[in-house]
Each structure stands twice: as C-alpha cells, then as structure tokens.
C-alpha cells in the first residue's frame, strides 16, 4: 500500500504508526526495486510518497546557514540564486535533466550511496541533517548521519526534513566527477576541494572530500588542519598525501578498479594542492 499524506504532519503520524519506505522522486527506489515490466516494483512493506509535500520544498537562508527542504528537486537547486556554486556544479554533472526534474536532495542524502554526487559537497559544507518525528526534531551532522553504503542513523519514525549547509567563504574551488562518460554516469570517484585565502594569499581554510572511494565519503579534519599549515609554510605535502592515501580504500567493481580510483583521487588531490599554491 502507498500512503499519500495530506500534509507534513500526517506524514509524521504515519511514520510513527509503522515502518514505511519513504519515496520522493522515486529515481533510486524505483531502480532498486525493479520488477518485470508491468509489475509493481518490489518495494518492501508499505510506502509513503512525499513527492507532492510542498512543505518540504524550500530553499532559505538565515544566520544558521542555508536551509534546503528535503523535497527540493535537484533542478530547483540549479535554478536558485541562493545555492552555492559547488553544489550546483555537482548537481549539473550528476544526472540527466529527466532525473533532475524529479530527484530530490533529501533522496540523495537518504540513499547514502558512497557515489552519491551531492554528498562530497555536503561534507565540505559541514552539513547538518535535520530529522523530525512526532517525538521532535533531531539535528545531526552528516558525518554521523551516514554510517555506510545505504546506511544512515535515521530511525524508522523519522523523516529527513531539511539539510543545513554552513555558509563558508572560499576563494578556490575544485570539483571533479569522474564517471564512465561525460554525462549520465555513476561516479567512479569524485573529488571536491575548497580553500579560502585572504588578500595576502594566506590560506585560512581548506576542505577536501572524496566520493566513491570508501564506504562513506572521505573527509578528515585533522589532515585538513595539517594541510592548511603546510600550505602556509610551503612545507612538502608528501606526508599528508600519504595519510590521505591510507584513508582512500576503494574497491574493484564493474565500473572501475581500485588502483585507478585511488591513484586518480590522489592526482586530483595533488592538482588541488597545486591550485592552492602548495608543493
């Protein structure tokens, strides 16, 4: 059975009553649960379809950051002047127009695929996931929210309400999605790097994330601190790159191999470091 909730409150009540599969745009659920054509997709248990809940579709900014309602469609992110360019860059390359018109940001987060294309960007923006249930609101950092491929700490009575991106300043931005072809492809790996330099060229902030090379997105604050120091002291980066190399533990699969994923990730890191003025 599919529940079509009247409104957001109805959704929370329904989720409280039973474990439901939440469906928004459907672009992931419908692929995962594919059945013989003509038959109903094999969605486990009952489901609730929140695609038409306008209450979850918004983009607004306040002092706590940029709030994006979970039901906001990917295409809407592209069209909004409030959305930061790095997120737009990822959305532009992640999917075809047909997918962007229905796929939602909440879906990409909730799906928690290591190859999820918005995720590396959300990681560098220290995104907070806002979950809600009839019991109340729970805010959790994306680092703690996603625990493995397809795994999150969302409880079955909770819904992803919105995500909050911290507004950060940057003067340099590097994004690369490496897929099997130039569009419409699942990432073999992806990389995002941001840095912020002052007028004197001193780097004040640097952030890096890798997608599809570990069971979750790879981002490490300690290494970023070391990298920041090195960038400002013209120290060699080799140790830091080695450390990242330890964190990047990709797999061989039908789309690429571990060797390429690892080496390419490191090349992108080096290329980014060079862009930031490092050695």
């Amino acid at each position: 059975m599919v529940i079509l909730p009247k409104d957001y409150k109805h959704t929370l009540d329904a989720l409280q009553d039973e474990k439901l599969t939440i469906i928004a745009g459907g672009t992931d659920v419908m692929v995962k649960n594919r059945n013989w054509s003509g038959l109903i997709p094999r969605v486990e248990g009952n489901s609730i379809n929140i695609f038409q809940l306008n209450e979850l579709s918004y983009i607004r900014e306040d002092e706590s950051g940029l709030h994006i309602g979970a039901g906001t469609k990917l295409e809407e992110l592209l069209n909004s002047p409030l959305i930061f360019e790095p997120l737009k860059a990822a959305v532009r390359e992640m999917a075809s127009p047909a997918i962007r018109h229905v796929g939602t940001i909440g879906g990409n987060v909730g799906n928690a695929s290591p190859a999820g294309d918005t995720l590396p960007i959300l990681y560098v923006y220290d995104t907070v996931i806002v979950l809600e249930s009839v019991e109340g609101i729970r805010e959790i950092s994306i680092f703690e929210f996603i625990t493995g491929p397809g795994k999150t700490t969302r409880k079955s009575n909770e819904i992803i309400k919105e995500i909050i991106l911290k507004n950060i300043d940057y003067t340099g931005f590097y994004y690369e999605k490496v897929g099997g072809r130039r569009s419409d492809a699942i990432s073999k790996l992806s990389f995002v790097g941001l840095y912020n330099a002052d007028e004197k060229g001193t780097i004040k902030d640097v952030r890096i994330a890798f997608g599809a090379v570990y069971k979750t997105i790879v981002r490490n604050h300690e290494l970023e601190r070391q990298l920041l120091q090195s960038l400002n002291s013209e120290k060699s980066m080799e140790d830091i790159i080695d450390e990242y190399s330890q964190l990047i533990q990709p797999i061989d699969d039908q789309r690429s191999n571990a060797n390429y994923r690892k080496n390419c990730s490191l090349s992108l890191l080096k290329s980014f470091i060079q862009m930031a003025g490092g050695n």
């Binding site: 099997g180 072809r181 130039r182 569009s183 419409d184 492809a185 699942i186 039908q254 789309r255």
Partner: peptide, 24 residues
C-alpha cells in the same frame, strides 16, 4: 567495457555498460 567474472557478465545494465551519450 564489458567483461565477465567467472563466466558472469559484469555490466548488465546501460548504467554499468557505458555507451556514448550526446555529450560524448
């Protein structure tokens, strides 16, 4: 790229078997 692993084709969908799009 298409290959088999122990006799089983690995790229079984047009998601995994990459043919050129207009952008390619």
């Amino acid at each position: 790229v298409m290959n088999h692993k122990d006799g089983k084709i690995q790229q079984k969908s047009v998601t995994d078997y990459i043919i050129p799009t207009a952008k390619d």
